[in-house]
Write a protein that binds this DNA or RNA. Sequence first.
DNA 1: GAAAAAAAATGAACTAGTTTAAGACTTTTA
DNA 2: TAAAAGTCTTAAACTAGTTCATTTTTTTTC
Lengths: 197, 197
Amino acid sequence: MNYKESHTLILNNIARFIDLTELEKQKYLSLLTEIKVKKKAFLMQAGDIAKYEYFITKGCLKVYTLDEDGAPHISMFAVEDYWTGDMASFMTKEPTHYFIKATEHSELLGISRANYDLLFQEIPKFERFYRILYQRSLVSYIRRSNHGISLNAEERYIAFKKKYPKITNRITQKDLAAYIGITPEFMSKIISKVNRM
Amino acid sequence: MNYKESHTLILNNIARFIDLTELEKQKYLSLLTEIKVKKKAFLMQAGDIAKYEYFITKGCLKVYTLDEDGAPHISMFAVEDYWTGDMASFMTKEPTHYFIKATEHSELLGISRANYDLLFQEIPKFERFYRILYQRSLVSYIRRSNHGISLNAEERYIAFKKKYPKITNRITQKDLAAYIGITPEFMSKIISKVNRM
DNA sequence: GAAAAAAAATGAACTAGTTTAAGACTTTTA
DNA sequence: TAAAAGTCTTAAACTAGTTCATTTTTTTTC
């Protein structure tokens, strides 16, 4: 069977944890929706109910909340081969607190809540896929927040740059500051200091 | 069937997400190990391989890492009806970076890695149980770290006290400081200020 | 490709939280 | 139950990061 690029990408992502038959692959792909977002467009805004969970096949998006002062806190940059969305809102059907905005023209595959539930009925193997996916997300989430806690802003910047060199080049300094958890002004200072070294 | 208290507690915890037959309950319980830890004793220390994942049936434990300066960072207080352990080490069989120390005399049920793997073969329903458990952990983890980011230390203290009033009374101020992410001295200042208000 | 908008740099004044040190109070242990 | 160990309080000096204001550089848009 010959698949288009985005389908190959998502099937390979799933094949990391479970094996699907050709028929199951067809079935799975039939449950997905193709979505395109232009640069600066929102995939999700605070107040929305999260209709989908997303897999990124092309582009880059920032996932963030706004605090009471209106300052953004970016929790992740989602690029090709990443999963994103707001699981809390997706599961509970309550309004999200998140914004997801494309920082580049992006293409995604989305699974709706109805199809997500259907998926477990039709192909129970997916319980295992998501069990492992969530387990690994949890591990990397815990690792990240634990790692970040004892480092100062400069060390967090250096660590990010080392871990995600490609993403570093795709995003603005301002967005990186909102991810690292500092002001753009202090980010600017850190970068000029690190470059001087 | 009549169960002992700790078994009723864990079966009820599991019944939140999946239904087990009487036979499956028996099978599941047979895969668990009973563990007791005295106050101040370690359940796990950095460098160990995490042999078990734990369910607390009695007591209180603190889960923490030490940073380069030897300062502790507490990531959770685990009390009755909580799951704990180091999933990263448990899954990869690499040494943990965590310490888990009882702050009270505690009793736990542990599942070994071998039995955890066996569990999915014998009762595949548990894929679903863990899928939902990890999903919910992820949601509350994300919520917590996102919530914490825009609050100052005083607000984080007030939020903790409101969310976990019982735990607040069971732990020392020093441990609470290591959880909130500040020095014990500053914790002391905050508490006397909040009490004065 | 000019004008407008957004991002980045720089610097001075400020603040939340740390460090160090010492004394008072509480809990643990023999 | 006395001594030792650990926890809590208070205060002064300090520092990482913020805020605000201005200028320069880069990117976007028509």
